[in-house]
């Protein structure tokens, strides 16, 4: 695991319909320390997914730089694991093969990479599903596979793009609790994108509020871990922090 540094990042699109340049990201700087968990929250269209796509290397930057462990990144790479809102599993591979994909790309032998995959599947309570295909699983289980597929490749930074936005509310709460548990166990460096304020406060050590392509505020979340919804739902500190972030997002 390594740190993630974003310096003076900007992104400008040419808007085909308006015929003008549109700046989606203005001069964003952000530091995620090694082993830290930072959530970026903001209304739709604030540019949070654009930032993640640039960090992942899916789209080019217009300005600034992105460093992982102090080294600039260029294009997609296994140093940055990504968890997608749409899960993006390989439908033609079993759950085990999906999770073993990253190690396979690194040239890890079949027996060893399957052992790695099984270890991570156990971490997400997916051992039973190893030989099933993604379409045979519920959305919640598919995204568990998505999370451990990224983790099993041992990335320096884990990028999560609204990963729980397309599962039902109960499943989402379970997945959030499991993610905090897995994070405490493996301590990956995480950048988590969401529009859900409660989710951001529940999961992260720091919540960055983004508005119109600019960082509005950066709030430390000093809630004790392990975190669970049963404990935090009625917790005064959790409510106060959530309200504070919500006010910022609404003012944005």
């Amino acid at each position: 695991m390594k740190s993630l540094t974003i310096r003076n990042l900007s992104k400008t699109y040419f808007d085909l319909y308006a015929g003008t340049n549109h700046t989606a990201i203005h001069d964003v700087s952000l530091e995620v320390a090694e082993g830290d968990f930072v959530a970026v929250v903001g209304p739709s269209g604030c540019g949070k997914s654009t930032i993640l796509n640039m960090i992942a290397g899916f789209i080019p930057l217009s300005g600034g730089e992105i460093l992982v462990g102090g080294r600039p990144v260029k294009g997609p790479g296994p140093d940055r694991g990504v968890v997608f809102q749409s899960f993006a599993l390989f439908p033609w591979k079993t759950v085990l093969e999906n999770v073993a994909f990253g190690p396979k790309m690194r040239g890890v032998g079949k027996a060893e990479r399957e052992a790695i995959a099984r270890e991570y599947l156990a971490l997400a309570k997916l051992t039973e599903a190893a030989n099933r295909y993604p379409n045979e699983l519920s959305g919640g289980m598919q995204q568990r596979v998505g999370v451990v597929r990224a983790l099993a490749n041992n990335p320096d930074v884990l990028l999560m793009d609204e990963p729980f936005a397309s599962v039902d509310a109960q499943t989402r709460m379970t997945l959030q609790e499991e993610l905090t548990r897995i994070w405490q166990e493996k301590r990956p460096t995480v950048l988590f994108i969401t529009h859900d304020v409660g989710e951001a406060v529940f999961l992260a050590n720091r919540v960055v509020v983004l508005s119109k392509g600019r960082v509005l505020d950066d709030i430390g979340i000093d809630l004790p871990r392990p975190r669970s919804w049963d404990a935090l739902n009625e917790d005064a500190d959790f409510k106060a922090l959530s309200n504070r972030v919500l006010q910022l997002v609404r003012s944005a």
Binding site: A56, P76, G77, P78, L89, F90, G102
Partner: peptide, 13 residues
Amino acid sequence: PPAVRNAAASLGA
């Protein structure tokens, strides 16, 4: 889906 191709690329394909 582009996300599936992106997933493979970011896993090192």
